[in-house]
Structures are given as C-alpha cells and as structure tokens.
Simulated scan of single mutants.
Amino acid sequence: MLVRIYVSIWSKYRPAILKMMIDAADESQSYQLSHHEFKALNPTSKGAFSFSLEVSAGKATSGLKDSAVAQDLWEILQLSRKASELIADATFRFSMDKQFILHIQKIN
C-alpha cells in the first residue's frame, strides 16, 4: 500500500492552490511553502522535494512517476470538485523548486 506522506500539507494549502489555479488564467502564480513542514514529515529525505507535474484533460500527463510530493498533490487535486473542473478544461503545470516555492502555470 502506498503511504501518502504529504497529503496533509496539500490539504492545508488546497484553498490557496485553487485560488492560484484560477488566477493562473491571467499570469503564472507562485507561493512560498514552509520547508519545515515537508522535512518534518520525511526527515530522512535528502532534498527530493522538488517536482514538476503536468495535468491536462483531467489526467496527470507527466511528473508522477518519481515524486511522492507530486503524487500527493495530484491526490488532493482529484478530491476537489473545483480543481477537477479546472483541470478538465485546461492544462496546468505545478512545480516546486528547491526553495519550496510552488509555481502554477496555466498552459492553454
């Protein structure tokens, strides 16, 4: 069974992520996440928190394979009716860099 380590963090930030997805229609959005939250959940990780996840037409098209952080974000997005509606109609790229800045870009 897969352990969803980061679901609690993404659940906490879900309202901000949804707002960013809506606002991404005008321009790319960025949000500074708290690195200590991620590190507290997985203290043995050697910095493998950064990811790039692309979703389109209701499906994750890239980025899930190698990142538990991205997998858990995708899990939370699928549980949100609003996020599902947004993803059904557009392509989004979610990425988090090594400084724990979440970037959301609407591609079309």
Rank of each mutant, 00 (worst) to 15 (best):
79 L>I: 03
68 A>E: 08
76 I>V: 13
99 Q>E: 07
6 Y>I: 05
62 S>F: 05
101 I>H: 08
36 H>G: 03
16 A>D: 12
88 A>Y: 14
43 P>H: 12
34 S>F: 07
52 S>M: 06
91 T>A: 06
90 A>H: 15
102 L>G: 01
105 Q>S: 13
5 I>N: 07
50 S>Y: 15
97 D>V: 08
36 H>L: 13
77 L>Y: 02
83 A>R: 01
54 E>I: 10
35 H>K: 07
47 G>F: 14
22 I>F: 15
107 I>L: 13
104 I>M: 03
61 T>L: 04
90 A>T: 12
83 A>L: 06
87 I>N: 01
101 I>E: 14
56 S>F: 13
63 G>N: 05
92 F>N: 02
87 I>W: 08
35 H>I: 02
42 N>P: 02
52 S>G: 04
98 K>G: 09
34 S>V: 06
78 Q>N: 08
102 L>R: 02
21 M>H: 12
97 D>S: 06
46 K>W: 03
89 D>I: 01
55 V>K: 00
53 L>E: 00
28 S>G: 03
50 S>N: 15
17 I>C: 02
2 L>H: 06
51 F>T: 03
27 E>H: 03
100 F>M: 10
59 K>E: 09
37 E>Y: 08
47 G>I: 13
75 E>L: 01
60 A>I: 06
13 Y>T: 04
42 N>C: 06
60 A>Q: 05
79 L>N: 05
63 G>K: 02
10 W>I: 12
59 K>L: 10
79 L>H: 09
58 G>Q: 13
102 L>E: 03
15 P>N: 14
101 I>R: 14
60 A>E: 04
23 D>W: 10
99 Q>P: 01
55 V>L: 09
64 L>A: 09
103 H>C: 09
51 F>S: 04
15 P>T: 15
77 L>E: 00
26 D>M: 05
81 R>W: 10
88 A>N: 12
72 D>F: 02
34 S>L: 08
65 K>G: 10
83 A>G: 05
74 W>G: 00
47 G>D: 13
55 V>D: 00
83 A>K: 01
3 V>R: 09
44 T>W: 10
34 S>R: 10
70 A>T: 07
17 I>H: 00
107 I>Y: 08
98 K>N: 15
2 L>D: 05
90 A>K: 12
92 F>A: 03
22 I>C: 10
93 R>N: 09
25 A>G: 10
80 S>W: 03
34 S>M: 08
45 S>Y: 04
21 M>R: 10
34 S>E: 12
48 A>Y: 14
